[in-house]
């Protein structure tokens, strides 16, 4: 009978919540993110409830001020700003979350392999990570966003889909965004694989995949969660930058980024049109940043006060 070594794992639920709740701004951020997500999720329901059509342009009711029908007024095509914001939020949040999750997944796999196996896989993967970090991000995104999908051999059904710009952004961002997670996971794995409980598990004859999943992964989860949360905010910001360059999500699909970009010309005439999407991006990104910060405080034992 081998000695049982305890697996430190994640902090207990109670400990985590107590710690997290002390970070008041993070708590507020969490509430905000949940609220935004719910609003975005129920946008179609709200649309029905209000009896409006978010996509319908009304030329005779452009740039209208807020009213009982249109809570935040109408935009340059006469569409309801409030509903557009909710639909834009759906897209922006979705892009942020999916891209961040994909990046985290990719980064975790690379980091685990590099850290656990060491040797040449580690050398190769870490050099690759260096290379990706060295890429001039913004110019490269511009090139990638302008590449012809058909020349890359994508079938027309995908390349010509209305949502292609959405897939493209998610893919591009996850392809360059995995490096932080990979480095974090590798560093943690590197130290974990020398720990007693891992050595013991290996002595018990557990295979590498099992050790990775059961013993290493739970212990590297904290930095992954933190990094992913922070990435979501960054992605939403990046989408707005790409929209500014007309390389983001394409209309008629609304995103906060392209809404913000489209109202540039109404800055003097209807400034509130620019204020709303800008504010939504700002508030959401800052909320995700605080959430990440709070999670870090609560999850990282070294950062305990």
């Amino acid at each position: 009978m081998a000695v049982e070594y305890s697996n430190p794992g994640l902090p207990t639920h109670d400990g985590f919540w107590r710690q997290f709740a002390r970070h008041r701004l993070a708590l507020l951020a969490l509430a905000l993110v949940v609220l935004l997500a719910l609003l975005a999720l129920f946008a179609p329901a709200l649309e029905m409830l209000l009896g409006l059509d978010a996509g319908a342009a009304d030329l005779f009711n452009r740039l209208a001020p807020p009213s009982a029908d249109h809570w935040l007024g109408t935009d340059e095509a006469g569409r309801d700003v409030f509903l557009r914001l909710l639909y834009g939020g759906r897209v922006s949040l979705m892009v942020g979350i999916i891209a961040a999750l994909l990046a985290a997944l990719l980064g975790t796999m690379i980091g685990l392999i590099a850290g656990y196996f060491g040797g040449w896989p580690d050398g190769f993967l870490m050099r690759a990570t260096d290379a990706v970090i060295a890429l001039p991000l913004l110019p490269l995104l511009i090139v990638l966003a302008a590449v012809d999908p058909q020349k890359l051999g994508l079938p027309d059904s995908i390349a010509q889909s209305e949502l292609f710009s959405l897939y493209r952004i998610i893919l591009i961002i996850s392809l360059v965004g995995w490096t932080t997670v990979a480095r974090l996971v590798r560093a943690e794995t590197l130290s974990l694989r020398r720990r007693e409980f891992v050595i013991a598990a290996r002595a018990q004859g557990l295979g590498s995949p099992a050790i990775l999943c059961r013993h290493i992964l739970p212990n590297v989860a904290s930095p992954i969660v933190v990094a992913t949360t922070l990435t979501i905010g960054n992605v939403i910001l990046l989408e707005s930058v790409l929209s500014f360059l007309a390389l983001g999500i394409q209309p008629p699909t609304a995103s906060w980024g392209n809404m913000l970009n489209n109202v540039q010309d109404y800055l003097w005439d209807a400034p509130m049109l620019a204020v709303w999407p800008g504010l939504m991006i700002f508030v959401t990104v800052i909320a995700f940043n605080f959430l990440g910060d709070g999670l870090q405080d609560a999850l990282d034992p070294r950062a305990r006060r």
Binding site: L237, S240, V241, L260, N261, A274, F282, V285, I286, N289
Partner: peptide, 16 residues
Amino acid sequence: LASFAGISVPPFWFAI
């Protein structure tokens, strides 16, 4: 709050 605000603001919007 200030440092997060700086990181989180859409650059185009802020510049304008």
